[in-house]
Amino acid sequence: MFRQSLLKTLTVLAILAAAIAYTFTTGYFGKELVIEAATLAILAISLDMIAGYGGMISLCHGAIFGVGAYTYAGLTVLFEVNPFLAFAAAIVVSAAFAFAVGAVTARTHGIFFIMATLAFGQMAYVLVFENKALGGDDGLAGVPRLDVSPLGLDFNNSVQFALFAVAAAALSYAAAAWVLRSGFGRTLVGIRVNEARMKAVGLTVWRTKAIAFAISGALAGLGGAIAAQQTMFVSPELMAWMVSGTVLMVVIFGGIGTLVGPIVGAVVWVFLKHEISSATPYWHIVAGTVLIITIVAGGRGLYGQIEYMVERRRLKRLAAAGVPSTATGREDETHA
């Protein structure tokens, strides 16, 4: 079950403070990295919600992210819709797409579920790729950013846009934490741990799964709409299945089922990639090796491992204080 522990709160606040401080002190390229890390964090939080807590390992989150990006880009570029409206539409359309995927795949499990989400993600990718109106494989250029001049702000200013992206990531975390701490979030964990028993006590499992997918999809779509504004350009590459694979890697790398881990993972991933890519063109070999080591080392991930150790000490202290508990680190034991 999700618990907003002190460690979680402190880590999130520390990253938030660091991101803001870095945004004000770094150059143009540094700010681009901040935005990239923020959007990746949003996407990773969105995936961790259903994968880490709901046990649904989705390989279509890149596609949902892309649906958000394309909805925003398509509406603003092709139909000149008000960017705020397009922004809201991006979130709604992504949520609807995710709901459909979640509903249809709800009966499948394990590798079949992974493959089914892959199939739906690829269908979205192909539809966009083959759609000439959406620019086909060339994509769409000239995507505007939100017009915030009435507020006296300007998102074409990279400091302001970076802060906006960081704020969106923080809000995404808060929203996901809120949902996971609600009755719905408890139910979601119940499904991961024992779906059959949830049915036996009367739960309409597919509906919970589909709604969880929709909430997760809304966050992914939000990330996509921000990513489209950052580069002011969208292409089908956003939706390729390797993007979904990468997000899953980020979640694992940071710590699946911890909600904070994905943020840590996204930040480390983006900056590490930048550092390594500037030294050698072979970033992927490093990424792949790091992922393999993470899994072989137990799969808890960077933040997950720390939380595991802190949590174990806490439970030991509780046990020593006389609380009848023989538990040892149960929080993240069974994600494998």
Binding site: T187, N194, M198
Partner: peptide, 30 residues
């Protein structure tokens, strides 16, 4: 056929919440 990694309380609460129609609560914690 239990919820292995959860506590006894959480196990029972999941069943109670589902039976009471509270499994979908977004604004409150069961």
């Amino acid at each position: 056929n239990l919820f292995g990694e959860l506590t006894v309380r959480e196990n029972l609460a999941l069943a109670v919440a589902t039976a009471r129609g509270a499994a979908g609560w977004i604004m409150r914690d069961t």
